[in-house]
Design a protein around this nucleic acid. Structure first.
Lengths: 241, 241
DNA sequence: TAGTGGTCTAGACCACGCA
DNA sequence: GCGTGGTCTAGACCACTAG
């Protein structure tokens, strides 16, 4: 494959280069979610490397949840509409019973200058704008989460006039070619303020789980931050390490 | 290596068998944490498989955080005293500044019949006993976490008379050959009760982060559960997905 | 039966750490 | 310079899926 020069100063293993090339093509939408990729043998011939190298690159992508390998069938682009992808980032689950997809009610989608915190988290400049989505998520027939989502306005043109589905990361990928790959959440227990209390129908001062999330794209660029307030009544946050 | 029979009915890849054999030896304390393992070439010769198979087994163990591989030096038993292991399960970090190891003050170590919840979580029978450790953890010169740890009494003989270090999982491994491999935590925001308020020096009703942890050994057996109450004031719970 | 990914091997060379 | 793990290759055979 293309040696990309600079071999001397910037050593990247072959399988890494293959992985990066495939990531780029995945992000560019060369294959749609759920699509089958060319077979290992085919890719090896096409890129001029051995099957073992392709295999290692695909193994890495599989461990990163970008593709799914199925013995005897082929390698497929991970579809984030699947149940698996749906719950990769959403960790709030009922205390009893199966995981459910929360229903979302959007309060507003507005455009603002980024606050200092948003600029810091999203790596924006002073003049940048963000889109803010305020919404309430329902589970078990109750309002459970009130949250404000901020994204760089430049990355999401026309967002304000769109209808948001419940699975917003699938929507980002489909409409804006923004693929969320990983996220980081910082949790605190706080007392409900007037706004949160009203939206979640509890008394001011009621304990809420505050979650500050920062989501990164496949290119490792921060693309979304959100501040969520969760009423952990009949539900909890599930973390596994 | 030993084929362990049954090849027909229970197919396990060679590298899996190697990994399992090494896991068993690690759990048995054949090598101490921090020790260097035999080299790939040596292990391959010893077990009668190719170096590639050993490599794959070690790669799996590395991904499971059981060993640490260092190019040019060797493969080492993961030492849970290291910073890395220390913070694998402890997700409470200061809002600003570096991660710190919390200091622990043990209130009591007592023996009780297991409650129904403990029996359920730890897979115990009606007649089982548990040891309970109540302690307070300090960070930033303040009491931050009040928690009660429960472990099966049978697995931890003599625990009541021992001094507990700050890093309790390293202690489990060293004294009782119990190696914690993974854990699950369920988080809620709750109002402080009288006990928690007293221990953490806050008002009754103050919002606290309640964490119910269940820890599993390398054999996938639940070996510890704990209920922790955290005052998220200057600290937060960090989750990455 | 054909084609896919999964396992296993053997051997070559590279990057790293250390004496 | 030597031994370690890391990368890359080529080829064999196995297990699974689909037509």
């Amino acid at each position: 494959m293309d040696s990309e020069d600079l071999g001397r100063f910037e050593f990247r293993p072959l399988y890494r280069q293959v992985r990066d090339k495939l990531i780029r093509q995945l992000a560019d939408g060369v294959w749609a979610p759920g699509d089958i990729l060319p077979s290992e043998v085919h890719l090896a011939a096409e890129l001029g490397v051995s099957q073992g190298t392709i295999r290692k690159a695909l193994d890495v992508l599989a461990s990163e949840k970008m593709v799914v390998r199925r013995q005897g069938r082929g390698t497929f682009v991970a579809s984030h509409d699947e149940e698996h992808g749906m719950f990769q980032f959403f960790k709030v689950v009922p205390d009893a019973g199966p995981r459910t997809i929360p229903r979302c009610v959007v309060n507003s989608i507005t455009r603002h200058r980024a606050t200092p915190e948003e600029r810091d988290l999203l790596h924006l400049t002073d003049a940048s704008y963000v889109m803010r989505i305020a919404r309430v998520r329902w589970m078990l027939h109750r309002p459970v989460i009130y949250e404000t989502i901020s994204v760089p306005a430049l990355l999401f043109p026309g967002l304000a006039d769109m209808n948001l589905p419940d699975n917003i990361y699938g929507f980002y990928a489909a409409k804006f070619s923004v693929s969320v790959a990983r996220s980081q959440e910082r949790l605190k227990a706080v007392a409900a303020g007037a706004r949160e209390a009203g939206e979640l129908n509890v008394a001011v001062g009621h304990p809420l789980l505050a979650m500050r999330r920062l989501a990164y794209s496949v290119d490792n660029v921060p693309v979304e931050t959100r501040l969520s307030f969760c009423l952990t009544d009949g539900v909890h946050y599930l973390a596994e390490h």
